[in-house]
Amino acid sequence: MTEQQALYKYCLILGDNALIHSYRLSEWCSNAPILEEDLALTNFSLDMIGRAQALLSYAGKIDGKGKTDDDLAYRRGEREFYNHLLKEMPNGDFANTIAKLLFTSAYEYYFFNELQHSADKTLAAIAAKTIKEVKYHMAHATDWVLRLGDGTDESHHRIQKAVNELWMYTGELFETNEATAILEDKNIAVDMAVVKAKWKQEIERVLTEATLTVPKDQYMQTGGSKGVHSEYLGHILSEMQYLQRAYPEAIW
């Protein structure tokens, strides 16, 4: 794997994470428990689409074959997507969505804090912009985890269940692969051990304050960076890519 290929892959992983998570959050539109929360979840989704555009455009540039962000979002198949499995998991109830948002936003906050020092100037700039967005996502998710954890018996039960069920998808967030190894040597990619330690500490703090039990480490799901996904991703793509696939000649 050349450095160029590694960087391409790295950008796709980051771009796909933003794209697929934005897809799931956009499904909340007109479905949130209160109108104000509808606007909030939409805002997060919009932040993520913006990030996906920046990262996929950059990936296309590195690849050098004239592919746009849309080409990469709408014309790749199931095995060519590299997002974490966590992002493609169905929304479930509000507790499940919030648990996912907490896990992801805390991860992204520490990840992009590191990435803003990347030797790659474009990635560093994207990271600097993203930190502001995900810091807010994290604050919003944290507040809701506290409310649900220490709210009613029902909400406590639901958020604990969501945390437990999503836990096995959190290991993948910190995985390294051939691409990250190459880029870490060049000070482009982030040291995942640093991110993991901070993430773990923060998640434990929030869950404990929310009167929740931190799950024991267990077998962790993996596969995203190899393009091996859950069955859910195929359905996301078939819906998302429908018009581009059905009318390949059309410009929208």
Binding site: I34, E37, A40
Partner: peptide, 19 residues
Amino acid sequence: VHASDKKMALQNARDTYTR
């Protein structure tokens, strides 16, 4: 805006009125 606590009120105001 509607909210159950101060923090929520502030966040909801942000998401509603500063788009």
